[in-house]
Amino acid sequence: MSHAPLKLEAAGVKLAFYNERMKRQLVVLGGIDLTVREGELVSIVGPSGCGKSTFLSAVDGLVKVNGGTIKVDGKTVSAPGPDRAMVFQQDSLFPWRTVLRNVMYGLELQKRLSKDEMRKRASDLVELVGLGGFAEHYPHELSGGMRQRVNIARALAPDPELLLLDEPFAALDAQTREFMQVELLKILARAKKTALFITHQIDEAIILSHRVAVFSARPARIKALIDIDLPAARTLEVKLSPRFRELQDHIWRLIQEESAPMAKVG
């Protein structure tokens, strides 16, 4: 892994908003340095409101940064592009489109493929995420877990280099979430993708990732980068191993250190 080429290079990424209510500049990202190698899955955890999602939006190109650079495959990011795709929370599927047409959405915008090619690619992806037979269903007919599979397939459709997942399983019940974590690992292995994953669940971050980045409280910096030295082929059993517990405890303490001062202020 350490010799794989760099997929994402973020250097000194700074971002500030003007907050209307507080009538002052709010620095959200205080200089983020983060690299992700090809084939790697890196998770970002941190205290709530620390700017994890904002960083992901910046990588996607939805938000402009004030300082530093974000490069994907060596090209500087300035707007959303086909080399990146975002997996949103479950209610972001278009309710008026069937599963297949939701997955086709990105392809339709790009107009690279013919109608038949788009349908072929989309139905292959619907199979890949394990929803063969549900292509003509509407999102409201699916369970939360199934909707998230569609969401992942929709992001994979334009064949992005980098997959960005913004707390994709946050709205799922605990059982479905655990199941989807394992499924995501399988899907990413099959699709051979690099991914940046945001979560507020430490166990989720550990089980999915090669590395976990812990963000500090706002203005966010990388407080720690932790290598997850667990076996590569992961199942839910890994949660029972002592090493898993150690990592979980370590990351929890890091986040606590950041949350405590905020609690005093707030």
Binding site: D60, L62, A79, P80, G81, P82, A85, M86, F88, Q89, D91, S92, F94, Y105, G106, L109, Q110, P158
Partner: peptide
């Protein structure tokens, strides 16, 4: 707003 964000993320133009 979520739908707009999705569309923008996939690179939708104003017309799209």
């Amino acid at each position: 707003r979520d739908f707009i964000k999705v569309a923008r993320s996939f690179g939708a133009s104003d017309g799209q």
